[in-house]
């Protein structure tokens, strides 16, 4: 307990908390995509997958609880660090220049907060299902994820916000992934370029994966299949 308090009280300790929870959330982002992409294999496949997850409610709730706690720690600790950083640079020079500029770095907090609002909306939309009454009477019953997702994304506003959010997510990760490794002490002169490029490549592959679903729906490549 004393260890945790002094660890969290230090600058590097807090950064480790952000990095470790970030890593966990990336793991979820990858796993979630693997689940989502099954929509291209037809209603049986993805609906079965959803039913399988719901067949173990205890495990599901443990995972959800861990993810929510991780997300909370990630956001809370980052905001704490950001506030401390602001205070450490209370006064700014009139002329400021950046010698290592990258939009993704400067917007980590902003992209993160937009993502947070997206996550809340996304959960209300597809998990709690409180935004769309059609989701309460799906043709194949409660676990008809296939129909639900396609109906949801047929609304261009929903798809648009989703695309914007996954774009911000991947921008967040394009800096975040290598940042996590640097914070956890996994970096060296010889690894550096590989880790940088690797992080960016993984981010944009994730973007392509996530974006493919609403785009396919909007282009009518994915349509509701009658049971």
């Amino acid at each position: 307990m004393k260890f945790l308090a002094s660890f969290y009280g230090s600058s590097i300790g807090k950064k480790w908390v952000v990095a470790l929870t970030g890593l966990m959330l990336v793991g979820y982002v990858v796993g979630h995509l693997v689940g989502n992409l099954q929509i291209f294999a037809g209603p049986e496949q993805i609906n079965q997958y959803a039913a399988m997850l719901h067949s173990m409610p205890k495990a599901l709730w443990v995972i959800r609880a861990v993810l929510i706690a991780g997300l909370f720690l990630h956001v809370f600790t980052t905001l704490k660090l950001a506030a401390e950083n602001k205070a450490a640079k209370a006064r700014q020079n009139e002329r400021r220049a950046s010698t290592a500029p990258k939009p993704a770095k400067k917007t980590m907090v902003l992209s993160g907060l937009v993502l947070l609002s997206f996550i809340v909306y996304h959960l209300l939309h597809f998990t709690v299902r409180s935004t769309d009454p059609r989701f309460h009477s799906l043709p194949r019953g409660e676990h008809d994820v296939h129909t639900m997702v396609i109906l949801g994304f047929q609304n261009p506003l929903v798809s648009g916000f989703y695309l914007l959010s996954v774009f911000l997510l991947c921008m967040h990760l394009s800096h975040g992934l290598q940042s996590v490794l640097q914070t956890l002490g996994i970096n060296s002169k010889s690894l550096r370029d590989t880790l940088n490029k690797g992080g960016q490549t993984v981010s944009w592959i994730l973007f392509a994966g996530y974006a493919s679903i609403p785009v396919a729906v909007l282009l009518n490549k994915l349509t509701v299949v009658a049971p």
Binding site: S11, I12, K15, L81, E84, A100, K105, K106, Q182
Partner: peptide, 20 residues
């Protein structure tokens, strides 16, 4: 590191402006 924190320096957020 503890002295660094106590002196009121900020936390590294991997901007890498320092190295540049």
């Amino acid at each position: 590191v503890r002295k660094m924190d106590a002196e009121g320096f900020g936390n590294c957020s991997n901007h890498y402006e320092c190295e540049a």
